[in-house]
């Protein structure tokens, strides 16, 4: 997605000028905040991939001679209360945040697209069942449902995976840390797909009634052609906006869960966990709370502005006055 927007020159070569994407890119460029958001988003993704490799220290390494040090040349962001390098921990936290965001967004998008399209095409009882499930999941306040699933499902899932381990002997099922991560990720994904599925369903249903699709059908175009050339290009704008918005949301949810002590467990590094671990010493060591707070805020801020810019760029009807 970012690639498609990140390389206008490439798009230029591939497509004739004055198409949907070029128009959108031009509108997007004019929005300075959106471009900044794009830069932050790309930087965040890169840090999530390469950050831990660039870290000056091991994020778990404890240096007892450097407890709660202010930023210095040796430790650019200082050290935390038990002498771990803040910069390294924040970079490791970036990996956690990006991993959660990417994983959750992929699951959400796949589930949302599949179930939304299925709902729109199948209609009848399938449509009703899927949409009722979506309604019910959307009825829970997001964080509460995630926290609830997390709190109640850890034991049953742990038992099932232990049973699976006894049965198969595969080491994966014994690794509680990975199982823990998976429960957090699936719980966050659980609340994201209903919104997307509704959006996809609505787009397909309304587009199918439009004249240009009816005309295609009347001319005898095959279904895949209508889908590829007309349905998808017309429905994808709002979808991209929703997906880009959900990335920042997933990052906040992961941090919130970790803040409540339900998400990533120590010694894993999560920005939310870092904030709460250092909260009690705020007035003594403000930088320990400020660093992860600001990094988290800047990332979410970047994705929010990116989403906003995409919205203005891809839904041009809203900005024509």
């Amino acid at each position: 997605m970012t690639q498609a927007f990140g390389s206008p020159a490439l798009l230029d070569e591939m497509m004739p000028p004055r198409n949907l994407w070029l128009d959108a890119w031009e509108r997007f460029q004019r929005n300075r905040m959106a471009v900044i958001g794009l830069a932050i988003a790309v930087l965040t993704l890169l840090l999530g991939i390469f950050g831990p490799a660039l870290a000056p220290y091991d994020y778990k390494y404890i240096d007892m001679r450097a407890l709660a040090e202010p930023p210095s040349l040796e430790h650019p962001m200082g050290t935390d209360e038990i002498g771990r390098d803040m910069l390294s921990r924040i970079l490791q936290g970036a990996r956690t945040a990006v991993m959660v965001a990417v994983f959750v967004t992929v699951i959400n998008t796949v589930l949302g697209l599949a179930l939304g399209a299925l709902s729109a095409y199948a209609g009848g009882i399938v449509d009703m069942v899927i949409m009722r499930i979506a309604d019910i999941l959307m009825a829970f306040p997001g964080l509460l449902l995630v926290a609830f699933v997390n709190a109640t499902m850890k034991r049953p899932v742990g038992l099932v995976s232990l049973w699976l381990y006894d049965l198969t002997g595969i080491a994966f099922f014994e690794n509680t840390l990975v199982i823990n991560y998976l429960i957090v990720l699936w719980a966050i994904s659980l609340i994201g797909w209903p919104g997307l599925a509704r959006l996809v369903r609505g787009q397909i249903l309304s587009l199918r009634e439009r004249e240009f699709i009816k005309a295609q059908e009347a001319m005898g175009s095959p279904g895949w052609r209508i889908m590829a050339l007309h349905l998808i290009p017309n429905a994808i704008g709002p979808l991209i906006v929703a997906v880009s918005g959900s990335i920042g949301g997933a990052m906040v949810l992961e941090s919130s869960l970790s803040y409540l002590g339900l998400g990533i467990q120590p010694p894993g590094a999560s920005w939310g966990r870092m904030i709460v671990e250092n909260m009690l010493q705020w007035s003594v060591y403000p930088h320990l709370v400020a660093m992860p707070s600001l990094v988290l805020a800047i990332c979410v801020f970047g994705f929010n502005f990116l989403g906003d810019g995409l919205n203005d760029a891809l839904n041009p009807r809203q900005i024509r006055s």
Binding site: G248, G272, P286, S293, L296, A297, V300, F301, N304
Partner: peptide
């Protein structure tokens, strides 16, 4: 912009910042 900016701060970040 400022409403988006504020909403980018998770509440658990904003609350201690405000208290301080």
């Amino acid at each position: 912009g400022s409403a988006l900016f504020i909403s980018s701060f998770p509440i658990f970040v904003l609350a201690p910042l405000l208290i301080i």
